[in-house]
């Protein structure tokens, strides 16, 4: 199933993310989560990257849950400390819904990350998206990881010069991060200028259109899948508004 056309995947991602943004009621969100997980399994997501990202966002997730629990005061109180309600039903529900929302967005992003860049570019071009736009997106996506690597490389190099990061005071640490950020950004700017020259020297931007050597074709299965997704989307949206 991993060779599903990127356009179908894009449509699926659109459904998942808009659902995640529209739904506020827990059962619907839970349903969407299930639907989304089904997609990540069958479309072949970049699972290792997803796991890494989940691990990185875990503290943030817990914080969001905590904030909801503490600040949402409506609903049946569930847990008391000396008559003072700590956890309410609504707080828990809202926290859980928000968590699922983030989870769904991360999962659907992982499906696109698992897709070959060139196939996505080809799909975009078939969808008549201007190539300048899709290339900008691709280059941004390729540059972001290098951005964080060069920052962490600088930190590693500095520690190997004998600096104990852990022993630096917070003020010094912040000052250090500020000092390191500038060269990292400057480096990225220089690299992007070089890239622009190299791309132009090979004719990028010479014509209003460009062809694609790699072809993506919607198969019958892709069309059927799109149809099914479309119907599912309409049904879900209708169901959500008409049967509260």
């Amino acid at each position: 199933m991993s060779r599903v056309d990127p356009r179908v995947k894009l449509f699926w991602v659109m459904l998942c993310t808009s659902g995640a943004l529209i739904f506020v009621r827990l059962p619907w969100m839970a349903g969407l989560l299930l639907f989304c997980r089904l997609g990540t399994f069958s479309f072949g997501a970049d699972r290792k990257a997803l796991r890494g990202r989940l691990a990185r966002f875990l503290p943030l997730f817990l914080l969001i849950l905590l904030v909801h629990i503490v600040f949402v005061r409506t609903g049946t109180p569930l847990l008391f400390i000396r008559k003072y309600p700590i956890v309410t039903f609504d707080g828990l529900m809202r926290g859980a819904t928000t968590l699922m929302r983030f989870f769904i967005i991360l999962c659907s992003a992982a499906v696109m990350a698992g897709e070959n860049t060139r196939r996505v570019l080809a799909a975009f071009s078939k969808m008549k998206v201007p190539y300048l736009f899709s290339f900008m997106l691709m280059i941004a996506l390729r540059f972001l990881p290098t951005f964080s690597t060069s920052f962490s490389d600088a930190l590693i190099a500095l520690q190997l010069r004998g600096v104990e990061l852990k022993r630096l005071s917070l003020v010094k640490k912040l000052r250090l991060y500020r000092d390191l950020l500038l060269p990292v950004v400057a480096d990225a700017v220089v690299k992007s200028r070089v890239l622009a020259v190299v791309m132009e020297a090979r004719g990028f931007g010479a014509m209003p259109r460009r062809t694609s050597y790699l072809e993506v074709r919607m198969t019958l299965r892709d069309w059927v899948l799109t149809g099914v997704l479309f119907v599912l989307g309409i049904v879900a949206l209708g169901g959500y508004y008409f049967f509260p």
């Binding site: 791309m199 090979r202 004719g203 990028f204 931007g205 010479a206 014509m207 259109r209 460009r210 062809t211 694609s212 050597y213 072809e215």
Partner: peptide
């Protein structure tokens, strides 16, 4: 990449 930019056929 280059030939694509020049709109050459596949």
């Amino acid at each position: 990449f280059g030939p694509e930019n020049l709109c050459l056929p596949r």
